[in-house]
Design a protein around this nucleic acid. Sequence first.
DNA 1: GTCTATATTGGGATAGAC
DNA 2: GTCTATCCCAATATAGAC
Lengths: 219, 219
Amino acid sequence: MTEAPAQDRGARSRDAILDTAGELMARYGYAATSISMISSACGLPTSSLYWHFGSKDGIYVAVLQRSRTELLAALPPTEVPGADVTQRLDTFLAEVRGAFERHPHGLRLLLGLGMVQQDASAAAVAEVRQYRDALVVWARESVSAVFGLRDRPEVADELARFTLRTASGTAVARWFDPGIALETGPLRVALLALAAHHGVPVRGVPGEDAPSHGLTNRE
Amino acid sequence: MTEAPAQDRGARSRDAILDTAGELMARYGYAATSISMISSACGLPTSSLYWHFGSKDGIYVAVLQRSRTELLAALPPTEVPGADVTQRLDTFLAEVRGAFERHPHGLRLLLGLGMVQQDASAAAVAEVRQYRDALVVWARESVSAVFGLRDRPEVADELARFTLRTASGTAVARWFDPGIALETGPLRVALLALAAHHGVPVRGVPGEDAPSHGLTNRE
DNA sequence: GTCTATATTGGGATAGAC
DNA sequence: GTCTATCCCAATATAGAC
């Protein structure tokens, strides 16, 4: 048991490095996170970090890649089940809220590391953009499925942007107040109103209040 | 004319330092912006920076202070003129959009510098929070005036948070796409729907589409 | 794959002439 | 108030034993 299962040692160290690096970079940002911080936080010498990832930049790219993979896997599938719009919307929002809760690092990484431009390599910048793009595509397809917008791509775009802006803004607010959760209640009302505003058929038309499915999420 | 007007030299240098420091810190964040970067960008030696501000931290605090003052001065007053809700809302959103456009650094600074915690002094952290708090108070009072919510503070809180989340999220999106503007059109629809959802009397009740005042702001 | 030790650059900050 | 020159240290990165 103390004898590590053969060559797993390397993989476990790799994961440990990524864990602590992700944690620190999400908290302090890329530039403010030093190799020695990571090293002392995870217990491995700096040379091990370099052996595994080659450079600080390499660590950053690897952290982003893993975060992207995990977050996308945690996000609800773009084919949302449900009979009508409000049902699908509630399912969708509940899952988004859950993913946002369980993976607080994703957006933080994009925020803190997004400010790179200068010292980051081309690979790093590319990975940041890919992360962002993946979220945009996911959001567009999801709202498209929820509201049935296959033939109204501009509307799907607008709703997706709106959802992502809210999520990003909440991630920012979280810096000041770590306890803050994604407020799906107001977002729900807003998305339904926006859809209706564009003439998208919605059963629970605004005017009559939306039924509270226990999703109102006010403190 | 080449002879500087007496003792103004110092003040002009001070402003120049704050200008370039603000620019750089908004772009790269606090940690990634070095003294030498600022020095060579504004043409003054590092010793001048230290003479004026004492430390990198001092520069940061001064930048934040000035940005806060300027942004708050540029934001619309919390007493919004207008006969009915939609009129006041349109005025309000137009001014917010304008301020957001003309002062792109404010939120960027809060984002990039917000990630400080570790190397920033207590004064710096305090200034960040004061900046944030000032924006929160302004937003709350503004929406309160727009929607007439003096007796519904929780509703004013929710609308204010929602507005700020959207603005923050847009500031984040701007990192990837510098051209992006605050989308007041969807925000307008959302705020009206949220108000109506809470039973706040609104003349242009949702269901009948809101009149486009040329504010729809879709690309 | 992991360790100790180290090379080397660039960072923040200061001294002191002008 | 501004300049040149410099100190000190932390940061990235590498060498080579184990």
